[in-house]
Structure formats: structure tokens, C-alpha cells
């Protein structure tokens, strides 16, 4: 009470708290960094000649950029207690819509706006169905996965749509380099930074944790849970739109086959990064580290000319190990 009673570990607890503030969050990340380091060493040992080359590193980063942007959105949705299975399909739809003849007529700027608004709109539709239509996220976004891909096929007639030469400004995003690194990688980095700020420094981020951690408590604290949920899926859709621009730049095409199974990679990266599928906990940094681990594995398998099936098996194992480690983490914290 008012009296300064004998309090035990005052000094200890402030130290502990700063460790927690700076450290513990990153302690988990330390494990991921270690895994990443091991993979780098494996790369250096098995392919000393072409692993550490600029061109290989750049290709790893550009590969990571597309799914990476999607992963940022997925992190928000999952921390908020949901799941978005439609991301790959939404990205494909956005890329197709942005490269139709009619859109391409309007020039690169309109193409970009088109991709972003298609992504956001479809994401918001997901969100409205889930928040106000009370559909289970898994079902709603699964339906959207199928439907969006179908619509993309219909619009493109299942043909790959090339970006016209007069719209090559889009393609420049991947060919123009700044300090040796393609612009798409900077876009990716920007999305990560903005995502981190949104999650950690704003009321929106705080409420995302609250909604995912305890919906009822969030509701009774006066948070508009439905609107928040809808916006979360809209955000995920926006990220798909950005990813669509990146993939258009990298492949010079829009296609209904883009982003196949991206949802699995994105969700896996988020899980490996320590975000709970039950919501309420997780970090952007973790997700990005998880994603880099995944991308690096792909790269190592390709460099070493190994079988893609083995690559899938390796990825599966990593997911299992990551989740097991998480469990141990959880147990220690349980009351």
C-alpha cells in the first residue's frame, strides 16, 4: 500500500523487465538466427564457389520479397486470431487484373493502383464475411482461395499475360538496382518496417494482440472487434496486392498460376517465427526470420541440385521442430 513495505526483488525485477523488454522477445529470435547461421554455413561449405555471390544473395532476397510481403499480412491476421488461406490466389487475381489489356492501356501507375485495390477489396470481402457474416476464417478464406483463382483463370483465359513494353516501368522495379540491390527488395523492406511499426507502436497493433488474445475481454474493453477483424483481412489483401506487383516485376507477367501454395509458405513462416496459431502472440521479426530460413533452404537445395521433393520433406521437418520448440516455450510460461 502507501507504506514502502519490504519488497523483495525490486532491483531484480527491473533488471528482469529490461531483459524481457529487450531480450526475451529476441531470445526466441536468437534460435532462429542460429538456424539461419547454420544454413549459411551449410551453403558456404557445400557450394563455396556460388553461394556467397552477390547474384545468389540477390536472388534469395528477391525470392523472399514476394512471399515476405504476404507473410507480413499473414502475421497480423494470425496474431489477431484468424487465418488467411486465400493469399496466393488473391495475389494471382491481382496480377491478372493488373495486366489485362484494358488495364495495361492506362499505363503502369493504374496497373499498380489496380493490383493494390483488387487485393484490398478481396481481403475486405474476406473480412466482412468473417466478421459480420460470422463465417469461420478457415472456411471463408478457403472458399476465397478457390473463387479468386477461378476468377483469375476466367479473366486471363488461363493464358499468361505479358507486361507490354510501354509499361516496362513495372518490370524496372526488379531490374533497377540501388546499391546493387533490386528495388523490389526495398519495397519488401519497407513493408516489413511499416508492418513492424503498425504492430508495435500503434493502437491498431495493440488491439490486434488483444483481439487475438481474448476476444471477449477485447469486446468488453470497448474495442470494435468486428471492424478490427475486417480491417485485418483487408490489410492481408493489401499485402497480396503489393506482392502481386513484385511478382509482376520479377516475371514480367500476370498469371492465374502465380502464388500457388504461397499460403502454406506464409503460414509456415509465421509459425516458425513463433506466432501462435491460436492468436494473441507473435512478432513480425520472427515471421521474417522464419521466411528467410525457408527461402534459404529452397536456395540450398537448388544450388546443390537436389530433388524438390526432399526439399518439401526438409521444410515439413522444420515446421514440426519449430512447433515442438514453441511448445516447450509455452510450458515454461504456463502458470
Amino acid at each position: 500500500m502507501s507504506e514502502p513495505t519490504t519488497k523483495r526483488p525490486v532491483a531484480g525485477s527491473t533488471v528482469a523487465s529490461s531483459v524481457r523488454r529487450l531480450g526475451l522477445g529476441e531470445m526466441r529470435h536468437l534460435g532462429l538466427l542460429a538456424a539461419l547461421a547454420i544454413l549459411v554455413v551449410v551453403g558456404l561449405v557445400t557450394r563455396p564457389d556460388n553461394f556467397a555471390t552477390t547474384s545468389n544473395l540477390v536472388s534469395i532476397l528477391s525470392l523472399a520479397a514476394t512471399i515476405g510481403v504476404i507473410t507480413v499480412g499473414a502475421t497480423f491476421v494470425i496474431i489477431g486470431g484468424g487465418i488467411d488461406l486465400s493469399v496466393g490466389a488473391v495475389m494471382a487475381l491481382a496480377s491478372v487484373w493488373a495486366t489485362t489489356v484494358a488495364t495495361q492501356e492506362q499505363g503502369p501507375l493504374v496497373m499498380v493502383i489496380c493490383a493494390l485495390s483488387v487485393g484490398t477489396t478481396v481481403g475486405l470481402i474476406n473480412g466482412l464475411l468473417i466478421a459480420y457474416g460470422r463465417l469461420v476464417p478457415f472456411i471463408a478464406t478457403l472458399a476465397m482461395l478457390v473463387a479468386a483463382r477461378g476468377l483469375a483463370q476466367r479473366m486471363s483465359d488461363r493464358k499468361t499475360q505479358l507486361i507490354r513494353v510501354d509499361n516496362s516501368a513495372i518490370v524496372d522495379l526488379s531490374t533497377t538496382r540501388w546499391l546493387g540491390i533490386p528495388l523490389v527488395v526495398y519495397i519488401f523492406a519497407l513493408v516489413v518496417v511499416l508492418g513492424w511499426i503498425l504492430l508495435n507502436r500503434t493502437t491498431f497493433g495493440r488491439r490486434t494482440y488483444a483481439v487475438g488474445g481474448n476476444v471477449e475481454a477485447a469486446r468488453l474493453a470497448g474495442i470494435n472487434v468486428r471492424r478490427h477483424t475486417a480491417v485485418l483481412y483487408g490489410l492481408s489483401g493489401l499485402c497480396c496486392g503489393i506482392a502481386a506487383i513484385i511478382i509482376m516485376a520479377r516475371t514480367t507477367t500476370g498469371s492465374s498460376t502465380h502464388g500457388d501454395l504461397y499460403e502454406l509458405d506464409a503460414i509456415a513462416a509465421v509459425i516458425i517465427g513463433g506466432t501462435l496459431l491460436t492468436g494473441g502472440r507473435g512478432t513480425i521479426v520472427g515471421s521474417i526470420l522464419g521466411l528467410l530460413i525457408f527461402t534459404l533452404i529452397t536456395n540450398l537445395f537448388i544450388l546443390n541440385g537436389l530433388n524438390t521433393s526432399d526439399q518439401l520433406i526438409a521444410k515439413g521437418l522444420i515446421i514440426v521442430v519449430a512447433v515442438l520448440l514453441q511448445r516447450r516455450n509455452l510450458k515454461e510460461r504456463a502458470p
Binding site: 493502437t203 481474448n214 468488453l220
Partner: peptide, 23 residues
Amino acid sequence: AQALILDQSVTANITLGTLPEFA
């Protein structure tokens, strides 16, 4: 069940209802 976000800090739990005032 109705009030706490167990994974969050005491601070985040205290300010949850009046967050806009701090922003």
C-alpha cells in the same frame, strides 16, 4: 475470461480500454 489479455503486460492490460487517450 472477460477482462484479461493474459499474454500481454500489465501495462497493456491497464490501458486497453482507454488506448486512444495515449495515442
